[in-house]
Amino acid sequence: MNRLSFGWTLPAYSVLLYAFLYLPIVVIVLFAFDAKAIPGLPIDAFTTDWFSASLGDTRLVGSLLTSIRLALMAAVLSTALAMPAAMVLAWRPVRMKSLVLCLVLGPVVLPQLVLGLGLVVLFRAAPDLIGAPAIVLAHTTMTSSYATLMLYSRFLGFRRSYIEAAMNLGADEFTTFREVVLPLVAPSLIAVLLLAFTDAFGEFVVAWFLAGFTETLPIAIWTSLRQVISPKIYALSALVILVTLFVSVSAQVWILGQSRRECES
């Protein structure tokens, strides 16, 4: 804290900005309860019918389940790829490290549109993979970048004296990993899994290009946005948004708590 406070303007402005960030979320949740078939102000009557209607819509629920299944696979795959790589990058001298980092982090800055189109060209060589497999492969590519970055910073802060202690006491690499490293980074791993899942679950552009006849939830919503939207979409979106917020916030608070404990110890 310093004396330069700008009075009440700074807190007041911050409140406004948070309102801007959460306004669309509030609106979508609010309209999920609107009894009218075409949502709009003023809301005269509230209903929970749209929630049961959306959960009874087999096509919508099917796309939701597809999204969950594919995002789960992408999250597990990308974490499995990212963890050993992050350990090596953080702990061992790596030749051409900046080149490796460019390779790993490239998908972050590459426009999703370009990656998607490039993958469309690539999968022309393997048309059988178009659909669910292609979506999982693409999402793994995208989320493994974030996963590697997050785990890399976690491993940089890891106290390597623990490893030395274990190995001086005669543990081999695998025992040390299983008994020392894994338990200590488990919370970060779970947080990374959750964030990778969230990212893959919501991704649209690349999935849309590679989907074939597979329909994920973002694709289903995209399709319905081109027509008159049923309030069922808002009801399901409201549910998904609340779960997403809960998952991402708890994952990040978890990471935050971890790094704080690390600093204090």
Partner: peptide, 26 residues
């Protein structure tokens, strides 16, 4: 500060399609 920072980023994790759908309502 930690909580406020997380609260800024949280909407970013929501699927872009849903965020855009919300803006159409607005």
């Amino acid at each position: 500060r930690g909580l406020l920072l997380v609260a800024v980023i949280a909407p970013f994790w929501i699927s872009i399609v849903m965020r855009v759908a919300a803006w159409r309502l607005l």
